[in-house]
Design a protein around this nucleic acid. Structure first.
Lengths: 340, 340
DNA sequence: CATTGCTCCGCAACCGATTGCGTTTTTTAA
DNA sequence: TTAAAAAACGCAATCGGTTGCGGAGCAATG
């Protein structure tokens, strides 16, 4: 627990002022090259470590990005985060991460913490039940940039990065219809969130275009967990008029649902065509492989972080754009392919 | 970009000293309940947010935990992190996360950043090629606790949380042998890391106990990625003397390997019994389900964080213990079950 | 009434780096 | 040789809370 050494200690040792040491350490141009060398060497020698707080306090910035996600342990989220961390780290930014656990209340607390910790920017994917934008308005008020990704607010002029959920859902549903499905069911998450409501709308649109009727019993709102998939399968089997195709809003849930159906004698894709969403590894491992949407999680994380950092460094402003739609495409696999 | 308001502003407004405001905000006992109420109300009203740096600077602590992991986007890591974040968050700690990308060099840089950011504690899972302990010694020197989890240093008296890799590998190999496997192959990661070397040793031990010979060609060292699994399958098919069982050190790799073998006509488990490690979701979705080890990722994260925080709050010292071994057990599934 | 003991609050010195402005020294120009 | 400009560095204020110590006010005790 040795004494922490400061620029003052270095200054004393070298008989220069602390100001000079500070400037030398930052490679300030008004400091003689030779002096810089001496300072840096001495700092090294004395085991100096800069104190970020003092620095942050004085400069009024933290070089830290805050990220709030619904949960860390999903393939999509962790992939996006991995990309963000890389970009941020390369640019000299730290990231602090917190999870809302799908709870709006927790999200509000997280936002507060980020706010008090003075993050330079905030990147968010919303919880299931977030209704209000209030807890993010504080940031805007202080000029702190906020970017949403994946799960964003429907309206408004807030910077957000998304994929075209509507169109993807449309494509996937259309594909199922083309494969001969006549009763296509949709299993999804909380319809309050854009990602799910848009997919739902795309699905209905495609049904309409294909001349297929839609009824209430074809929609199942769940939490999209592994277990939800199994439960959904049970429900389907109990349905008086069973569907012949399912479009699930995520792969994990699609996989378990499909699995249970198979165990109960359903043949995939002939008795039941299945499609998921995300291109999660499980979609490539489930047998048959699951038709899905290739969700560019990595690119999305990369873009969010890059965009944020460019804005912070003044290279480009967030305010000039407010929505970026990433490309994502349908991956047709065996779980839905009836015709050769 | 309104002016940031401080305790001094509140103090002036209320005609009390900044010290009183500070104390009131912390619910200090030497402040009158009524005064506290006034301060808190006023703070709210003025839109005050405390400045953590100033606070950190003064108290010389950050309420921040650093976490360094090889990569974020693995099921095991993200699950452990999710648990850590929850514990930390509940205890009022933030976590900053960085990934070494399996590179020792990057890990050193990450450690440096964490060091300069004055994390109160550091939780680490090592990169593939970390040889040295140096970059963590600085922390010990300053009295900053460091805990390793999963991938730890072999020797030494550093606090670490692990599972019994040796025993698990032993169990799994023994199980394969009991199912009639005579040539059991092992596909693993970098043997420099404890987790893989221990599993390798356990595997060999079990082979020896079962009276099965081991030869060099039964070991395949890979990066355990999805692709590595497929490559491994190709290699196996090219082997003059093929194995009849495989023990893979992670489930993702096991799943893809198994999948490719199946596509090439292998019957699982009869032609080839397969076992993985981790109890990743894919192990439950692959067909047949993959025999694996139930790795308590959540508990491990929870424990690491709890342990760290207890140490920081003085509730219990890290130094009294140096290794915790979590319980983890064999989950026998269809991919290896030949006998009923 | 004097003394003791609380309760409640203010003073002022930190924590460590940053930076505007001024001063000294050196270099260049005239 | 001297004035002007540039280079190099120091002074001291500042960022915003925190906290040891001391003091005022007031009630309780003897």
């Amino acid at each position: 627990m040795a004494k922490e050494i400061t620029i003052y200690d270095i200054a004393k040792e070298l008989s220069v002022s602390a100001a000079t040491v500070s400037r030398a350490l930052q490679d300030h141009r008004a400091i003689n090259a030779n002096t810089k060398r001496r300072v840096i060497t001495k700092a090294e020698e004395m085991g100096y470590r800069s104190n970020q707080f003092a620095s942050n306090l004085r400069r009024r910035k933290t070089n830290t990005l805050g990220v709030i996600v619904p949960r860390l342990n999903s393939h999509f989220v962790s992939t996006a985060l991995a990309a963000m961390e890389k970009i941020a780290s390369d640019a000299g930014y730290n990231i602090i991460i917190s999870q809302s656990m799908e709870s709006g209340a927790k999200e509000i607390m997280n936002a507060k913490t980020m706010f008090e910790n003075r993050v330079d920017g905030l990147i968010v994917s919303l919880a299931y039940d977030t209704d209000s934008f209030e807890h993010f308005e504080k940031f805007a008020g202080k000029g702190i940039p906020v970017i949403f990704f994946d799960r964003v607010f429907d309206g408004g002029d807030i910077a957000s990065i998304v994929i075209d959920n509507f169109r993807n859902a449309c494509d996937i549903t259309k594909h199922l219809a083309e494969q001969g499905c006549r009763r296509i069911m949709h299993i999804t998450g909380n319809l309050k969130r854009n990602v799910y409501s848009e997919r739902f709308n795309g699905y209905k649109q495609a049904l309409a275009e294909a001349g297929l009727p839609w009824t209430n019993d074809l929609l199942l709102e769940t939490d999209l967990s592994e277990k939800a998939g199994a439960d959904a399968a049970e429900k389907i089997m109990a349905m008086p008029q069973k569907p012949d195709g399912i479009f699930v809003a995520n792969d994990i849930c699609a996989a378990t649902c499909m699995h249970v159906l198979q165990q109960n004698g359903f043949l995939i894709p002939n008795d039941m065509a299945v499609a998921g969403f995300n291109n999660d590894p499980v979609s490539r491992i489930a047998e048959p492989n699951i038709t899905t949407i290739n969700y560019p999680a990595h690119q999305m994380g990369e873009l969010a972080a890059t965009y944020m950092i460019n804005h912070l460094t003044g290279a480009a402003s967030i305010h000039t754009t407010n929505k970026i739609i990433l490309k994502s495409e349908l991956l047709i696999r065996a779980s839905s392919l009836r015709k050769k």
